[in-house]
């Protein structure tokens, strides 16, 4: 194959194009990295914004009730005069915290169960597969509500419920990956060159498993966040005064018919944007880490 080790020349002409080229936007891989950087910036911006806004907007201000969005209150105010932007941002911080805890717990659980299922023999595989099937057949919301109540409700209940219900899909992925790796010719050949089982696991299998795990972890976030919102929306767990996006949305339901559209739409859109960022991050990371798509 003929290979010329050259960087593609920049597009001639427009200064804007040159700028795009300089920023790396002209290349596929550059665009992926930019998309991921923007997503990470959004995640960082949420807690920073919450800190800048402080808690002042969370207090009722009866003189400024039900105001539509304005420069003073970008997301408007609610029926108690609380600033909706502050409430939304604080809600998103809670979402991120719940998402982080739940996704981390779920993915570690998935890693342990998936690896055990694939490597500890038939009995372990049977038990794990059975657990996965059980968790997958029970409707998700029912399971969330049951666990949330069972562990005593409250914010703790929500986190535990979300953490305990998001591992099955990733467990399956990791189990399949480990099974495939164990059967791979290069893994078996390594043993025949005298490499011990632990060395093979560490040098051959782990590098394949990590990207899968990382992407699985990132893609768990949106699920966890949406389910936290759903639980709060249904009124399970969190106190109605906590600024959680689910609670904001539940409250807004009562005001939809009165024309206070900003109460529901703006926090909802913010939540959607946050979730979408995780999606974009996971998708781009996947394309970047997979050697097949990475070089395109």
């Amino acid at each position: 194959m003929r290979a010329a080790r050259t960087v593609f020349p920049g597009s001639p002409g427009l200064a804007g194009l040159r700028l795009a080229e300089a920023l790396g936007l002209g290349s596929r891989r550059g665009r992926w990295l930019w998309a991921m950087g923007i997503c990470l910036a959004v995640f960082a911006a949420v807690p920073v914004l919450a800190w800048l806004l402080g808690d002042a907007g969370l207090e009722p201000d009866l003189l400024a009730r039900n105001q539509p969005p304005s420069l003073g209150h970008l997301f408007g105010t609610d029926s108690l005069g609380r600033d909706m932007l502050s409430r939304t941002v604080h809600g998103l911080v809670l979402s991120l915290r719940v998402g982080l805890l739940a996704a981390a717990a779920s993915s570690v659980l998935a890693l342990v169960l998936g690896v055990a299922s694939a490597s500890l023999g038939r009995a372990a595989d049977g038990v794990v597969s059975w657990l996965v099937d059980i968790f997958m057949t029970v409707p998700h919301m029912v399971l969330l509500i049951l666990i949330s109540f069972a562990v005593g409700g409250g914010a703790r209940g929500v986190v535990i419920a979300v953490a305990l219900t998001h591992w099955p899909a990733l467990t399956r992925v990791i189990r399949a990956e480990v099974l495939q790796l164990r059967g791979a010719l290069y893994v078996q050949t390594a043993r025949r060159f005298g490499q011990g089982p632990l060395a093979v696991a560490a040098t051959h299998m782990l590098p394949h498993l990590l990207p899968q795990f990382l992407i699985g972890l990132i893609l768990l976030f949106p699920h966890a966040i949406l389910h936290e919102a759903a639980l709060s929306f249904l009124g399970v767990g969190l106190s109605p005064h906590t600024p959680a996006v689910g609670i904001l949305l539940a409250e807004s339901m009562r005001h939809l018919s009165t024309g206070y559209w900003w109460l529901g739409i703006l926090p909802g859109a913010a939540l959607l944007a946050l979730v979408k960022c995780f999606d974009i991050l996971g998708y781009n990371l996947d394309r970047l880490l997979d050697p097949k798509t990475s070089q395109e």
Partner: peptide, 21 residues
């Protein structure tokens, strides 16, 4: 069962016998 095996195999598809990463 362990250690360097004195019998080594070479298969039809070399791309399966090397770690792609």
């Amino acid at each position: 069962r362990r250690g360097y095996l004195p019998v080594q195999c070479i298969h039809q598809h070399p791309e399966l016998a090397v770690n792609p990463r």
